[in-house]
């Protein structure tokens, strides 16, 4: 198993009652899991969310490693 920490933005945090923005949301996944697996686990599989890891927008096929921090954003336009 691996554990990744998910940070949620916009209106996404309210879907998780126990979400703490300082600590993030720990998610345990199987070895070899990718972004798609993570989104499926969180219930975001069919939603337009942007995963960002280390400042880069990640593909859904990107493999996850133990300790990764994944930030999830909703679509935005300029303001």
């Amino acid at each position: 198993m691996i554990t990744v920490t998910v940070y949620l933005y916009g209106t996404l945090p309210r879907r998780f009652e126990d979400y703490d923005p300082k600590q993030g949301y720990p998610v345990a996944l199987d070895q070899g899991a990718d972004i798609s697996d993570l989104l499926g686990h969180l219930g975001f599989a069919r939603e337009n969310v942007a995963p960002v890891i280390n400042g880069i927008i990640a593909d859904r096929g990107r493999k996850l490693a133990d300790g990764d921090r994944v930030r999830l954003f909703q679509p935005v336009q300029g303001g």
Partner: peptide, 21 residues
């Protein structure tokens, strides 16, 4: 974006996204 994010956070919602990038 216009129906959910903007009403909740305004344009300030971009601070997190642009810093994260």
């Amino acid at each position: 974006f216009t129906g959910q994010t903007l009403p909740e956070l305004g344009t300030a919602g971009l601070v997190s996204a642009v810093n994260s990038l």
